[in-house]
Amino acid sequence: MTGEDKELFASGHRACAGCGEGTAVRQILKAAGPNTIATVCTGCLEVVSTGYPETAWEIPLIHAAFENSASVASGVEVALKQLGKKDDVKVVAFGGDGGTFDIGFQALSGMLERGHDITYVCLDNEAYMNTGIQRCSSTPYGASTTTSPAGKYSIGEQRPKKPIGAICASHDIPYTATATIAYMSDLKKKAKKAIETKGPSFLHVFVPCPTGWRHASNDTIEISRLAVETGIFVLWEAEDGDICNLNVTVKPKKRKPVEEYLKTQRRFGHLSEEDVKKIQADVDEKCEKYGF
């Protein structure tokens, strides 16, 4: 086995059956190649892949804490420069949505601003899944989580998803992209581009979570596809922080109604027709902005 078929994220990791992160990490590590050092923040990915004395990582990995994948990676990158190895070795920092949108946001902003040659990958499953599905600033409007439960007086999460990609791009970094696992060649291409880009790059990867979103384990890829086909999650890339001229890489010819996406997941199961209409209107407005 050589090249692309060489698995750098080994089997035997303990992610839930159908976990989108498993797929994403396998592919991103293949894009990065074996001459890579990774950092990871506390969360599902770290817990399922590093239980001592086992590790799923075939490349060097360091996990330090929840909020600092980006700053640990900064130290790694500068040390590599000092050792004269930076030209050969890539640095990829992984974070979940909690470790990226919320608690690790400051460290991420610092890493991007300082211009380190690091690819930051956010694996976004839209809530704190490792601690049991708590609301995050990545959680979309209307989703029921354990800390934004739907109830008689609540529709679940009441705030829209934080636009992390645009915020990161606004640091005027060389490359920013969004991707999801259903669109495999798009994901591979963007991962490769992000990793090959000199300087900081940010890759926002949308990864469905069967446990937290309460969907069938075999629906992971289908839901990731529906998110794009409905316009819920837009696949784009931007160079040099130019979010006014971003390139939408996958434009569905005819957008499907958001209901088709929402009905696949029980976290949205409580939504009324009115609620779905509101979400549809929000998505319509967003897609108009993106030009499709």
Partner: peptide, 8 residues
Amino acid sequence: PSTFGSFG
């Protein structure tokens, strides 16, 4: 390749 910061 080694893993630093394992889950103990």
